[in-house]
Every structure is written in C-alpha cells, then in structure tokens.
C-alpha cells in the first residue's frame, strides 16, 4: 500500500484555558491525522474538548486566555506559528468551517449573495460576474431551489435547513481541501439532518476534500464517518475505522456510550445503561492515570495503566489505557 500523505496532522496538541493564574488543559495531548477524501468524526459528550480542538485548529481561540502547544501541520506549515494575517489567508481558503448555529454564523444585514461573495472576494481575484456565476454554482451544489431569488434574500427569510446549506456554500466557496464541521446538524430536524448529511457526503465525493466532523450524535457518526476518534476529558480514548468501532468497540467509555442509546424496551425492567458519576470539571480533572477510572470504580486499579497511552490493538484500531481488557459492565461477569 502506498504511503498516503496526510492532509492535516495534529501532533500532541494541548489547549489550556486560564483560570486565574493557572491554565487547565481542555485538549490534552491530542494527535490525529486527516487524509484526503475522508470524513473523520470526532465524537464525545459536552466538555470533552471536541469543539476546542476545532477552534484551535482554525486559530479562533482567544489568545489572551488560552495557551496552546503542539503542532498543527498543513502543507509543511505549523498553523499554530502563523500570525493573524497569514491565518486569515488559510481560513476560508484552505480550511472551510461549518458551525452548529447557522443563524449565528450569518450576517443578518447581508444578502445571501453578499455573504458568499465575500469569501470569494477575500481569497480570489474574480470579478463581479465570475463571482455571481460561482455563487449560483454553489447554491445549486448545496441544493437550494430558485438560487437566482434566494441570492437576494436575507438569512431570516430562509428556513433552518436552507440557512445551513448557505453556511455550507460559504465553507465550500473557495474549494478548500479541508472542511471542519462542528455539530452541523444538531439544530435541525431529522429529515433536514438526513439531507444535510447526504449533502456533505456528496460534496466529499465530488471535491475529495477531507472533513473533520465534530458531533455528539453516534447516529450521525454511523451514517457519515469513515474514521472515528472518541474523546473523553480532553483526550482521544479510542480511534478506529467506523465499521470497526461499531462492530468491536473496546474502550469502556465507547462501550458505555453505545449502551446508553435509547432502544425499544424488551421488558418492563429493561433500563438504559448509566455511566457512574459525572464528567469532572476542568479544574478538578485528574491529570494522572486513566481519566475514565473514576467512572468505572468496580474495575481494579491494577487494570489501568499508570500513564495511559494509545495502543494500536489491531491495524488502525487504537485504544487508550489497558483497562479495556479487564472491563465488564457493573454487575456483569467478565
């Protein structure tokens, strides 16, 4: 197999937020690679650091209150070293971003045409006519009906699904090789969600770009991703191709999450799996040992690694810590 060059490489990324005089890491040593033509899903619950990871790749963090170390390599550049001016040339041109709330990411005072055209103006030297042609092409690509009319509309005149399509059109405007989508369908109804996910898959087929899809929804992951990284408390705890992850989940956190998905009840006593305890706050997060250990107290301490790292347990399937080998659900025999 030929060595595939990765599109984006994140090495040992640490993102710390300032609390008074100390910094606490919300993203704590994340390494991952994004290849051409793949959708990499990053999945986890609120507070796991998945959105922080996205904003720091995009350089959108607040520099006064965050401390970042590690590398984000793109085309031999470490994005973290760039100044704001250089970053602006990467953002939108090389990396497109889709946010959760389409209304919040559109300017209410600008027509749809102007919003999309702005991205083209900034990154290319197209003239007005070329831009108009490109905007029309984009609106068609994202499946907006009557693009000629919609172009002149304002965001509030469109439905939620249509707005999200416009946001996607903006992200695609300059044909970026990388797209980062942070919960792109969370605010949408299921039928619209299905349409947007289809659209993202189609776009990826057409353009061959690499997409980082950040979500809390395992259903969305199963429907779209090629590869999945599961995050817990700032770290990746499991990483695998999507079929492998759903067929053979190994880390206790991944298994617990999959078990808490609502399903049709088989009997009256049938209950959903509940993960013991709560996610610790950033300040109280234990930085030593397995971070999931307090959530599975019935597993012996010896099962955990002292300093858990990701182990490649089968080709392309990585799991943090050794506790997965000894894991069983509470009250269940191993």
């Amino acid at each position: 197999m030929a060595v595939e060059r990765s599109l984006l490489e994140v090495n040992n990324l640490q993102v710390g937020f300032r609390f008074g005089e100390v910094y606490h890491n919300a993203v704590d040593g994340v390494s991952l690679t994004l290849k051409n033509n793949e959708i990499l899903a990053i999945v986890g619950e609120s507070g796991c650091g998945k959105s922080t990871l996205a904003t720091s790749i995009m350089g959108l963090h607040d520099p006064k209150n965050t401390k970042i170390s590690g590398e984000v390599l793109y085309k031999d550049l470490n994005l973290l070293d760039l100044n704001e001016k250089l970053y602006n040339r990467i953002r939108g041109n090389d990396i497109g971003m889709i946010f959760q709330d389409p209304l919040g990411s559109l300017n209410p005072l600008m027509t749809i045409f102007n919003q999309i055209s702005e991205a083209l103006e900034y990154h290319s030297d197209m003239n007005e006519e070329q831009r108009k042609a490109r905007v029309l092409e984009l609106l068609n690509q994202v499946g907006i009906p009557r693009p000629e009319q919609i172009m002149k509309a304002y965001p509030h005149e469109l439905s939620g699904g249509m707005r999200q399509r416009v946001v996607i059109a903006i992200a695609l405007a300059n044909k970026p090789p990388i797209i980062i989508a942070d919960e792109p369908t969370t605010a949408l109804d299921v039928t619209i969600q299905a349409q947007i996910l289809d659209l993202m898959n189609d776009i990826q087929d057409e353009t061959g770009s690499g997409i980082i899809l950040i979500t809390h929804d395992l259903g969305v992951v199963a429907e779209t991703a090629d590869r999945v990284a599961v995050m817990y408390a700032g770290q990746i705890v499991e990483e695998a191709p999507v079929e492998e992850l759903f067929a053979n989940p190994l880390h206790p956190y991944t298994r617990s999450l999959l078990n808490s998905i609502p399903h049709e009840l088989e009997s009256d006593d049938d209950e959903l799996h509940v993960i013991h305890g709560t996610v610790p706050s950033l300040q109280k997060l234990p930085r030593k040992g397995c971070r999931f250990a307090p959530r599975i107290p019935w597993i012996a301490d010896e099962a955990h690694e002292e300093d858990p790292v990701l182990h490649e347990v089968s080709p392309n399937h990585k799991v943090r810590c050794t506790c997965w080998k000894h894991f069983h659900f509470e009250g269940e025999e191993k």
Partner: peptide
C-alpha cells in the same frame, strides 16, 4: 419519511439505508 430519516446505527448498511431514505423522500 420521519422513520427513514433516523440515522442507522450500523455503518455497514449505510448505503442501503441511504437509498431507502431517498426513495421514501
């Protein structure tokens, strides 16, 4: 239409599910 739009938890049947969903749509 609503039922077919629920994401399928099995990635191996993704393609078939998508075709079915688009047929219903």
């Amino acid at each position: 239409r609503l039922l077919s739009a629920i994401p399928d938890m099995d990635p191996t049947t993704r393609h078939a599910h998508k075709i079915e969903r688009q047929r219903v749509e």
